[in-house]
């Protein structure tokens, strides 16, 4: 499934102490462009989803009647104003909360609790600050492959760290990294658990515009190699158009529902240059911004 090429490089060098790590360069099996419809075509199946929270002031109806079908290998973005329940929906798919009514099915299996098949990249990177970059990614690997020898697990973790181009920083603690680098480690960790669905909760929201751009490019590069099913929450309209196949627009909360689903017909692979020239881009952008402005609270 995965082929390895070994690569040795130096992590740090001080006086006579040199630490080298031999890592396995992971080359994922080439995913064909043929549509994969072996599994259930609706890979993520959300039907009649309601979510109610009990608060001191009474019941809060966060989500009402959500119906969403995501195909395998599809990249779907969720857009909406703050407080419209996007994170709640993501948490429901991840299994971190339970629906009040309705169901979430992933690959025809109901989601009742979090699992490694639905990896999450959190908005605040959520790296464990007392572990190094390598160990943070290794956490995911250890959960998926507990029976493999420790050295092999370390190599696999290193390959994912290298996938996000942080090989030279593998031994650093999160406090020594910049925001973009921390988020990259979060992405590496999510990919390391080899999930079926990747859930991203505003992964680039806390980053500056320049870093955001390069992170989007990196995410597209990684994703296009293995085409995982992705559900991403974002505020950024351009980011949504650049990255996704479909964009889901949510109404404002409470009682949020799906207002509209738009297709992004721009062909892949996408680069920023081709994006800017695509006629659909301008139209899409107008449509999305128009919707957001229309539903804004003021």
């Amino acid at each position: 499934m995965y082929s390895y090429t070994k690569k040795t490089y130096t992590l740090y060098k001080e006086k006579s102490i040199t630490m080298t790590v031999t890592t396995a360069q992971l080359e994922p099996s080439s995913v064909s462009n043929a549509p994969i419809q072996m599994e259930h075509p609706e890979f993520v199946n959300i039907t009649g989803l309601h979510k109610v929270f009990g608060t001191r002031k009474g019941l809060y109806y966060a989500l009402e009647n959500i119906d969403l079908k995501i195909r395998k290998g599809e990249f779907v973005s969720l857009i909406g104003h703050s407080g419209c329940g996007k994170s709640t929906l993501l948490n429901l798919v991840a299994g971190l909360t339970q629906p009040s009514q309705g169901s979430v099915l992933v690959n025809n299996r109901e989601v009742t609790s979090p699992g490694l098949d639905r990896a999450v990249v959190f908005q605040s990177h959520s790296l464990l600050p007392w572990l190094s970059v390598l160990d943070n990614v290794k956490v995911a690997i250890d959960s998926v492959y507990p029976h493999k020898p420790s050295k092999e697990r370390k190599e696999m973790a290193m390959s994912f760290v290298e996938m996000v181009h942080l090989g030279a920083h593998a031994l650093k603690k999160p406090s020594e990294l910049s925001g973009g680098m921390k988020q990259r480690v979060g992405i590496a960790r999510a990919f390391a658990s080899n999930p079926q669905v990747l859930l991203l909760d505003e992964p680039f929201g806390a980053l500056d515009a320049l870093t955001r751009g390069s992170m989007q490019d990196e995410l597209t590069n990684i994703w296009e190699k293995n085409q995982k099913t992705v559900m991403m929450i974002t505020h950024d309209v351009d980011e949504a158009i650049f990255l996704s196949d479909r964009i889901v627009l949510m109404s404002n909360g409470p009682r949020a529902h799906i207002a509209k689903i738009v297709n992004v017909p721009i062909p892949r692979p996408r680069t920023r240059e081709t994006l800017l020239e695509a006629p659909e881009y301008i139209e899409l952008r107008k449509e999305l911004l128009h919707y957001l402005v229309k539903t804004s609270i003021h």
Binding site: L96, S124, S143
Partner: peptide, 24 residues
Amino acid sequence: SDYENVAQVYQLRGFRYFFLVLLP
């Protein structure tokens, strides 16, 4: 709660949860 969420998603249980998340 971020660390709790990480522990849940990446299936950290028992001793691993204790030494990787709770104690530190």
